[in-house]
Structure formats: C-alpha cells, structure tokens
C-alpha cells in the first residue's frame, strides 16, 4: 500500500470513529438514562425507538441562529468550541484498537502524548468562559479550570502507575504487557483514573462547572447552534476517549478470547461497557459541591494514586 493511501485510510478511520462513536454513546445515553428513570426516551426520530434522535438534534443545531453576545470577544468566543473539540480528535489517533498495529499512529510516548493533549481542553474552557462576557460563564470557567488542573494530577499519577507496571509509555505496549491479574493489582489506579477522567470531561457527578441550577450552563451559557453542538460533541468524544483510555490502560484493551482476530471487537465492547458505567454514574449520583469536589481530588484520589505508585514499584521490584 502506498504511503499516502495508508495515511488516508488511517485518517478516514479516525474521523469516522470520531463521528460515529459519540453518536452511539449519545444515543445510548438517551435510552439508558431514560430507562433508568422509568421513561422510554426518544421514540419518534427514525422509525425504531428513536434511533435517529441525535441526527435530528444535529440538524436542529445546524439550523439554529449562531449568536455571539455583543460584549463578547468575538474571535476568542468563536474559536473556543473548536479548541474544545480538537484535543479529543488528536487523542483518538493514539488509541490502539487491536493487536498487530491496529492503531492510527503508534507512538513511543503514546500515553504521555495522550495526557499532554488532553490537557489542552482546559484552555478552551477558559477561553469560552472569559470571552462570553457573562459572569455565570466566567464562574463556571474558573470552576472548570480549577477542577481540570486539580484532577489532572491523579489522572497522570494513575496512568504513571500502569506505565511503570508495563515498563513502557506506548499504549499498544501497555496492552501487550497487560495480564488479567493486573485487574486486582492496578484496581486502585483504575478507580482513580476513571474517577478523575470523569472529572476531566466534566460529566456528572463532576459537572460543577456547568451546574445548571446555579450557573445556567456554566461556560457554555452563551453558546448556540453549531458551536454549542461542538461543545456537546466534545463531551461525548470525551466519554469515548476516557472509556478507551481506561480500557487500554486498565482493562486489557484487546485481550479476550480469540484476541488475534476479534481484538478490535473486545476493545470496542470494553469501551462501550465503560461508557455505560459513565452514563450509569450520571443517572445515579447527585452533583458534587465545589468543596467536596476539590476535597475528593486532593484528599482521596491523589493519596490513593500515590499509594498505588508505591505498591506498583514494590511489586515491580519484588518480581
């Protein structure tokens, strides 16, 4: 296969995943959340159980007027949703789907790359918050930035633990090195990573920055139409990314029966299972208050992650 064709296939695959997977998760969220609340959820769009609801939503968003507040910093305001979406698209490049190099861009320092790029999202939060010229937006943005900065620490520490265990920073390498008993050994790290990942994508119960009962919609308050849809899309791609990272780092990625042929299926299944848990948590738990949120980060997750690092190092040395 010529180089350019190879490149094209990879890029198309990533873009397709970027466009399709969030829709699946979004639809799943509609239905799962509805049934967990004793409702049916969307039933009309599309013939069968409202399968086309998100497509309809997309069409609706496109048709809506694109409003920029008069006092807003126009360019920053308009750029923010793209900046919010961009890192997640880039991150998808590095996530391995199956064995034998089934990854868009294998990287030596894949884990590092992923964490670094995910960190860019916080800039978008601050941009949208400040440029909206709205005090609710600003408050939400400051909360969001504080939350993202805080939770990045346990996220990186937990990821460092598994990287240490595997002895590599490459994501396919980590999956290669994974074995089932890691589920037990790395369980605290997995938990910390998952929880702080949830906080990183600002999903309930960590949605203090967009707490709609007090901040309207936080830093997204002033956004309409397509730009708002970008923020929403970023949230759902964020679910995919966090679920995929949890899968790859802690749940063994493509490991499973017949991994040679069905590896990609296992990865996808695990990603969807984790996504389901993310939705489930949203339905089950109330929003954490700002002080509880920060306390959970600094007094629970960071110490647990550090303890896990010590444990990992000890086991690694003992083996």
């Amino acid at each position: 296969m010529p180089l350019w064709l190879d490149l094209l296939v990879r890029v198309v695959a990533v873009v397709a995943a970027f466009l399709v997977l969030p829709l699946l998760v979004g639809q799943a969220e509609h239905k799962v959340m509805a049934h967990m609340q004793g409702r049916l959820g969307p039933m009309y769009a599309g013939a069968f159980h409202g399968w086309a609801q998100l497509v309809a939503d997309g069409v609706k968003f496109v048709q809506k007027e694109d409003i920029t507040p008069r006092d807003a910093d126009r360019r920053v305001f308009q750029l923010a949703p793209v900046v919010a979406l961009f890192p997640y698209l880039i991150v998808l490049l590095a996530i391995p789907l199956g064995p034998g190099g089934l990854v868009a861009q294998p990287l030596d320092v894949g884990l590092f790359f992923v964490l670094a790029v995910l960190g860019i999202g916080v800039v978008a939060v601050l941009m949208s918050a400040w440029a909206s010229a709205n005090k609710y937006s600003l408050l939400g943005g400051l909360r969001g930035a504080a939350q993202l900065l805080g939770y990045e620490l346990p996220l990186v520490l937990a990821a460092a633990s598994v990287a240490m265990a595997a002895g590599t920073l490459s994501l396919p390498g980590i999956v290669e090195a994974w074995s089932p008993w890691w589920l037990l050994w790395q369980a605290p790290a997995a938990l910390v990573f998952f929880v702080s990942g949830l906080a990183e994508i600002r999903r309930p119960p960590f949605d203090m920055p967009i707490a709609d009962s007090e901040l309207v919609f936080g830093y997204m308050t002033e956004y309409t139409g397509l730009r708002f849809a970008f923020f929403l899309l970023a949230e759902y791609v964020g679910i995919i990314v966090i679920a995929a990272l949890t899968t790859v780092l802690f749940l063994g990625g493509w490991h499973g029966p017949a991994a040679e042929h069905l590896g990609w299926l296992w990865t996808l299944l695990k990603v969807f299972a984790v996504s389901f848990v993310i939705i489930w948590l949203r339905v089950s738990y109330p929003r954490l208050r700002e002080d509880q949120l920060q306390r959970l980060c600094w007094l629970v997750l960071v110490p647990v992650a550090l303890a896990q690092l010590v444990l990992t190092a000890a086991v690694k040395v003992a083996l």
Binding site: H35, M36, Q37, G38, R39, L40, W280
Partner: peptide, 20 residues
C-alpha cells in the same frame, strides 16, 4: 454509593411507565 447504583440498575430492568 452502591445502593444508588443498584436502584438505577433495577429501574432500568423494569418496564418503563411512560404511556405512548
């Protein structure tokens, strides 16, 4: 926390009460 998760999961397995 576990109880909370159990409640929602149980509700999901039941028939929903929405009337069409």
């Amino acid at each position: 926390l576990v109880n909370g998760l159990a409640v929602t999961l149980k509700t999901m397995t039941r028939r929903s009460t929405t009337q069409q």
